[in-house]
Simulated assay, not measured.
Amino acid sequence: MAYDKIAFLADRNDNAQTALKALEERYGNAPVAEADVIVGLGGDGFMLRTLHRHMTRNVPFYGMNKGTVGFLLNAFAVEDLPARLGRAETATLHPLRMKALREAGTEQEAIAINEVSLLRQTRQAAKIRISIDGRVRIEELICDGVMVATPAGSTAYNLSAHGPILPLSAGVLALTPISAFRPRRWRGALLPRNVHVKFEILDNYKRPVSAVADLTEVREVVEVEIAEAPDISLKVLFDPEHNLEERILNEQFIP
Rank of each mutant, 00 (worst) to 15 (best):
A100S: 02
R102N: 08
R102F: 10
E103F: 11
A104G: 04
T106F: 10
E107L: 06
E109A: 15
A110L: 03
I111K: 04
A112I: 07
A112V: 06
N114W: 04
N114E: 05
V116E: 00
L118H: 01
L119C: 09
L119W: 09
R123I: 14
Q124I: 10
I128Y: 12
I130H: 12
S131L: 02
R135I: 14
V136W: 01
I138P: 09
E139D: 12
E140S: 02
E140Q: 02
E140N: 03
E140K: 01
L141C: 07
L141R: 03
C143R: 11
D144P: 09
M147G: 10
V148Y: 01
A152F: 00
A152T: 02
G153A: 08
T155Y: 04
T155E: 03
A156D: 00
L159N: 10
L159G: 10
L159Y: 11
S160K: 00
A161P: 03
P164C: 04
A170S: 08
V172P: 01
L173I: 09
S179L: 13
W186L: 08
W186T: 06
L190M: 06
H196I: 15
H196G: 10
H196V: 15
K198D: 08
F199K: 06
E200W: 07
E200Y: 08
L202Q: 08
L202R: 06
D203Q: 13
Y205N: 11
K206A: 13
R207Y: 13
V209E: 04
S210P: 07
